[in-house]
Structure formats: C-alpha cells, structure tokens
Simulated assay, not measured.
Amino acid sequence: MGWKREFKKMQKETKKASNFFDNSEDISSLIIWDRAMKPANHWNIDNLVIDISKFNDLIQEIIKNQNSPENMEKYSWNLGSISIVEKFYSYPMASYFKETYNSISNRLGSYEAALIVNSISKFSFYITKKFWKLFNYTFANKNINDTPLIRVFEVMQRTSLEALDGIIEKAFLLIDKRKLDPYKHHLLIEEIIDLGDDFTYHWARMFDQVIDLTVETFIFQSKYGKAKSTNNSTIQANFFSVDDDEEFDTFFEKTKTLVFNDEVNDAFNYFGISKMAKPDEFKKIYRKMAKQFHPDLNSDQNSAMEMKKINLFKEIVEKYYEKYEII
C-alpha cells in the first residue's frame, strides 16, 4: 500500500480547505455568483431573451478553444421534471433549451418560460466557466481521451443535469401556476433567476470529489498500472477502465455518497452540533442564527452571504435527518 502513503503525503502538501466557502484562487471550485439585482422594469420578456442570448454567447466564447473527448461534443437528455428530450451542444450542460422553453410555455406561458430558461442558462454559464477553468488547471498535461478524464465529463454531466431538473422543479413551485408580473412579483422573479446559486454548492462539491478521485487514479496508474480488480481502498481505479453503464451508476452513486457525507460534516460543524443532536435542538440554533444574520435585521454587508450559508446547511441537515428518519 505504498501508493496510499504517497497520495496522503501529496494531499498534505497541497491540501485545500475542506469547507467549500473557503476560496483558494485558481484551484477552488467555488462559484462566485452575481445576483440578479435590477429594477422591476428590466424584467420584461424582451430583456429576458436578450440575457439568455448573452449567456449563450459567453458559453460559446468559453468553449470555442476547448477540446472535448472524441464523440462527446453533443448529446440529448430526457428531463424528467418536464418530460421532454433536450439537446445539449457542449459538456457539462450547455444548451439553447428550445424544447424546455416550448414545454414550459405551453404549461405556464411565454413569460414564465423565458424566466426559467434565463435561470437555467445563467446556471449553465457559471458551471461551464468553472468546469473548464478547473479542468484545464488540473489536467492540462493529460490526454483528454484518457478514460479517467472521460469519466470526469460523464460525472459532471450527470450532476449538472440533476441540478437542471432541480432548478426547474423549484421554479415551478415558486411560480405556482400564477401569471407573473415584473412589478407585482419583482422579488420573486429575481429569486427564480438566481435559483442556480444554491445548486452550485452541491455541483462544486461533486466536482471536487471527482477531480480528487481522478488525480488519485493517475497516481495509482503511474506507479502500478491500471487496476484489474476491485479493492477496499479509497481509490476506485477500476471504475475508470470500464464502459458498463451499471458500473458507472455505481461509481456515480458512491461519489454522491462521499459528497453527501462531506456536506453533512460541514453543516453540523457550522451549527456547532454533533450528529447526535435532535432536530428540536437544531431548530433552536437555526432560528437563533437566522435571526442574527437575516439581512432585514442585520445591516452588515456580509449578512446576506452568511444567511445563504445558514439556509444551505439547514437543507443538508434536514436531508440527513430525513434520510435516517431521525425525529
């Protein structure tokens, strides 16, 4: 197990902060999101369409000089949230969302459809930008057609598409079949446009995890060649050398489990409680912190960001309690 000692040594030498919110320039997966703060008269359908076009132009600018693995430049995917097949022109999740717009327009109306497409286009731009920046920074000296790197594309594609379904589902819940008006529903419209902000947390953690596993795989292969059988170590090098869909699903779910466990630890540590704490104890701490940092009650310019952390970690803690049926 000499490779494990070498890998742990490298981890200590290049260790990144474990908390997602501790940004390290040029190597962090942190996505710095610009909030949609504009006057109500900006949010007419014409400006929404213009913004969508701008996001697509920015994505095209990012990907025009990027090389993708062979046969991985375009794909189609069934979006379960609206039961349609959408076309994507680049990884991890870049699309013009034409079928998405048509489907939502038929259900809710053209304005609501443009609003949701604006939201998911904005998310698509941010993850595309971050994906290529961090991917190139980490793997610039590797062959992009190597199986471990193809797996990076596949995992982040799946993660991005799950986020896409989540954004659409949340947008539907917020709209709740009502006809939106830019003046009457100004704050709601901005909230829908920025739905992708919260989803960048989980997306970035998945990206961190799959990059760590990929680096670990390359280290293993450089010392011992490609793995031929499963072992009980952290590294799952054999997952990167098979094409079977069932094996990929297994790898993806294991990666999600690792990410979930990391997020749970971060969340409980943030609230200063252990996993043994009962939900009622957590709720008291949450209410106290929310009251302390809510922007309406705290004029500090950093209170909004702190409130975002509180709500993100609250959702993770609640999912943990739900998963293990803790009451």
Rank of each mutant, 00 (worst) to 15 (best):
N136M: 05
Q157P: 00
E162L: 11
K129S: 12
W77K: 12
M72F: 08
L164C: 07
M37W: 07
F135S: 04
F131A: 09
F131C: 09
I59A: 04
Y75I: 11
Y111H: 07
D34Q: 14
I84E: 12
N78M: 14
I59Y: 06
I120E: 02
L108H: 09
N67Y: 01
Y91E: 12
S105A: 15
D146M: 04
N67C: 08
E70F: 15
G80Q: 11
I52F: 03
K133C: 04
I120P: 03
I84A: 07
Y91G: 08
M37G: 06
I45G: 03
Y91M: 12
R158Y: 09
A36W: 06
K98Y: 12
N71I: 11
L149S: 02
G109Y: 11
K142D: 08
L149M: 02
P39H: 03
H42R: 15
A163L: 01
A114R: 04
L134F: 09
Y89I: 01
D51T: 13
R107H: 09
F125T: 04
A36D: 09
K142N: 11
M93T: 15
I116P: 00
K133M: 09
R107S: 15
W132P: 01
A94G: 07
L108S: 10
T100K: 03
N136W: 08
L134T: 06
N78Q: 14
L108Q: 07
P92W: 04
K122F: 04
S83P: 01
Q66D: 11
Q60F: 14
N145A: 03
F55H: 11
A94Y: 03
K54S: 12
I120H: 00
F153S: 08
N65Y: 10
I144Q: 03
P92H: 06
I120L: 03
N141G: 05
I62G: 01
I104Y: 01
D51E: 13
W132F: 13
N67Q: 14
N47M: 06
S76L: 05
V152N: 05
S90M: 10
V49Y: 12
E61P: 04
N56H: 06
N78H: 15
A140T: 07
W33S: 00
S103G: 04
S95Y: 05
E70G: 11
W43Y: 15
Q60T: 15
S53I: 07
T147D: 14
D26E: 11
A94D: 05
W33C: 00
D26R: 10
T159I: 13
N106L: 10
W33I: 00
K133D: 06
I127T: 04
A36H: 07
I63A: 01
V152Q: 06
S105G: 12
N65L: 09
I59W: 05
Q157K: 14
E25P: 02
D165Y: 00
S110C: 07
P148G: 00
Y137Q: 13
